[in-house]
Computed example of a mutant assay.
Amino acid sequence: MSILAWLVVGLIAGFLASKVINKTGSGIVVDIVLGVVGALVGGFVFNSLGHSAPTGINLYSIFVAFVGAVIVLVVYHLIFRRRAL
């Protein structure tokens, strides 16, 4: 994917994941970073399951990035809660 596609997919997926997990958006930069990292994590998970990785700006790529971003947020919150205790 091009850099612009990564940014657009990352923004959409990161925002949606933030809304689902945190109940609010995290800001444009954090949402983009979350979505791009989520696309990498989601691509790895989906490749492991035998599906294709994100390929451009389409619903499948947004879904893969969203799933990855949710995984990243859940793991982050699990680690953060353990440190706080």
Rank of each mutant, 00 (worst) to 15 (best):
M1G: 12
M1T: 06
M1K: 12
S2M: 03
S2P: 06
I3P: 09
I3R: 13
I3A: 08
I3G: 10
L4R: 09
L4D: 15
A5E: 14
A5M: 10
A5D: 14
W6H: 08
L7Y: 03
V8N: 03
V9S: 03
G10K: 02
G10S: 05
I12T: 07
G14E: 03
G14D: 02
F15K: 05
F15I: 08
L16I: 15
L16V: 15
A17C: 08
A17W: 00
S18H: 07
S18F: 02
K19Y: 12
V20N: 12
V20M: 14
I21L: 03
I21W: 01
N22V: 06
N22G: 07
N22F: 10
K23Y: 13
T24G: 13
T24R: 15
G25M: 07
G25T: 12
G25R: 12
S26C: 06
S26V: 04
S26D: 13
S26G: 11
I28M: 12
I28K: 09
I28G: 08
I28Y: 05
I28S: 08
V29R: 02
V30H: 12
V30M: 08
V30Q: 14
I32W: 09
I32F: 10
V33H: 03
V37N: 04
V37P: 01
G38K: 09
G38R: 10
G38V: 04
G38D: 09
L40K: 08
L40D: 06
V41I: 15
G42V: 10
G43F: 00
F44L: 14
V45K: 11
F46Q: 09
N47P: 08
N47H: 07
N47D: 11
N47Q: 11
S48C: 11
L49M: 14
L49V: 11
G50K: 11
G50W: 11
H51D: 08
H51E: 12
S52R: 12
S52P: 09
S52M: 09
A53Q: 08
P54T: 06
T55F: 07
T55Q: 14
I57E: 08
I57A: 13
I57H: 06
N58L: 07
N58F: 05
L59D: 13
L59F: 05
L59K: 13
Y60K: 12
Y60Q: 11
S61R: 01
I62Y: 07
I62S: 04
I62H: 08
I62K: 14
I62V: 15
F63N: 01
F63W: 10
F63V: 02
V64K: 03
A65L: 00
A65E: 01
V67T: 07
V70K: 02
V70D: 02
I71R: 01
I71H: 01
I71P: 00
V72C: 12
V72W: 06
L73W: 00
L73R: 00
Y76T: 14
H77I: 02
L78W: 05
L78P: 04
L78E: 07
F80N: 05
F80S: 07
R81M: 06
R81K: 14
R81C: 05
R81T: 13
R81H: 14
R82P: 00
R82W: 00
R82K: 13
R82E: 11
R83T: 10
R83W: 08
A84M: 11
A84H: 15
A84N: 07
L85M: 13
L85Y: 07
